[in-house]
Amino acid sequence: MFEARLLRSSILKKVLEAIKDLLTQATFDCDDNGIQLQAMDNSHVSLVSLTLRADGFDKYRCDRNISLGMNLSSMSKILKCAGDKDTVTMKAQDNADTVTFVFESPNQEKVSDYEMKLMNLDLEHLGIPETEYSCTIRLSSAEFARICRDLSQFGESIVISCTKEGVRFSASGDIGSANIALAQTASVDKEEEAVVIEMEEPVTLTFACQYLNYFTKATSLSPQVQLSMSADVPLVVEYRIPDIGHIRYYLAPKIDD
């Protein structure tokens, strides 16, 4: 028996919003520690890695490890039926071919259940090597979303260049070019608005705008985002989900033709 209950369905709704443009289907691997999901987009350019820890749920029970293969557009349709303040419970029997979502309104006056067919997914799982990154940049997630959106107007790629002084995002194309430079903040009123850079060595890498914009669908999950970069390795874009886990996106860089 697998059962996981969240007091607020909004976390799960936001998680789905954060992955459903990149992935059409994915396996939720459930064990004692919680729920893990790892999946690449169809073109194998990016990867989503989601962790929801058991202790972040209001109730969590997983008697046997279970893999729930889900069609994410179906799951998204079902989660749209939950009110933001509803409690959500995911349930599956061992060896089940369905998963059930139960939504309960705060006053318990409305209880809905939706059963969804599971899929047998045989997806490739990748080993991600432990990496010491040359640069990590922490900034407001809303600011990062804004930068990606603004620069997307200028070209298909964004160059991210990190030095001791700060981080520069650049794009260029038919209409011209754009540069946004963020300096490390000296002092801020709100911690989540700070720009914090840790740098061993300067790094400049080029990434596809389209994917960065997909990643920013996770903005509502966290006030901050962390970018980790090293020369010639995939970028990591991490959103920490308060009290329950994180979502990380990996994106392969572009290289000169």
Partner: peptide
């Protein structure tokens, strides 16, 4: 603007 690499260039199947 540059050639897109895939993750297979960096990560191994496990």
């Amino acid at each position: 603007s540059g050639k897109q690499q895939t993750l297979m260039n960096f990560f191994k199947k496990s």
